[in-house]
């Protein structure tokens, strides 16, 4: 099969959330001499982005999204093994601490973001909801995290994101952690105003921004 055919199957397996078929396609492609990293990027990652878009339009649903994320994890594990076999490293790309800010108990969206970011080889430590800024910072320091992501659904709680930014500055930690914010009332303008490093309008953009921030 050609690389394009493997890519087409890869996208299809993501949309179907079929981990076994996704893994079999990757293994067959590797046996055919296809670069697994390229297939991961052009096929599976493209597929999961498409899944995210369909989810955003209400044409795919949360269980299917979770199945797709699981399929992505299965494929990523194969790629990591393959890289290791060739003497490369399959180290995780970074560590991210993620939380819904204090006063806010909405975490459906954050859970989706966490699942999709994990598919990119990033270790995500989800602290849950209603988490005080100080607890988020303490955990990030403890884990020597690269990124801090926060979510808020309410206009009354999004101010906690600024509390976090101020706390990082106060403790001299602003340069140590990159920060990403998101949630329905949060905008790119707000993110810039409070000094956050990045903004994710939806799960798909959050993933792109995490990849960008981790360089």
């Amino acid at each position: 099969m050609t690389k394009e055919e493997y890519i087409e199957i890869a996208i299809d397996t993501m949309k179907k959330g079929d981990a076994d078929a996704a893994a079999a396609n990757m293994n067959n492609a590797i046996a055919d001499g296809i670069d697994p990293a390229e297939l991961l990027s052009e096929g599976y990652s493209a597929g999961i982005r498409e899944v995210g878009d369909l989810f955003g339009k209400g044409r795919m649903f949360l269980p299917e999204l979770m199945l797709a994320a699981d399929a992505m994890k299965a494929v990523s594990a194969i790629v990591e093994d393959e890289i290791a076999k060739k003497g490369g490293t399959s180290e995780k790309k970074g560590v991210m601490v993620l939380a819904t800010v204090q006063g806010d108990v909405h975490d459906i969206g954050k859970g989706i973001v966490a699942s999709l970011i994990k598919t990119q080889g990033v270790e995500v430590v989800d602290l849950g909801r209603d988490v005080p800024a100080a607890a988020i910072v303490d955990k990030a320091v403890e884990l020597n995290a690269d990124l801090i992501g926060t979510s808020a659904l309410l206009t009354t709680t999004m101010g906690e994101m600024k509390v976090l930014e101020d706390l990082l500055k106060e403790k001299g930690l602003k340069d140590r952690f990159k920060t990403l914010v998101g949630g329905a009332p949060v905008t790119e303008r707000f993110a810039k105003r409070i000094g956050a490093d990045a903004y994710g309008e939806d799960a798909s953009q959050a993933v792109s921004e995490v990849v960008r921030l981790l360089g």
Binding site: K57, G58, R59, M60, F61, L62, P63, E64, I108
Partner: peptide, 18 residues
């Protein structure tokens, strides 16, 4: 739109999600 947390539930034979 109806968020599909379950995804397969139907009412009178029609899927609710989406």
């Amino acid at each position: 739109f109806n968020l599909g947390m379950h995804g397969q539930l139907e009412y009178e034979g029609e899927r609710i999600a989406g």
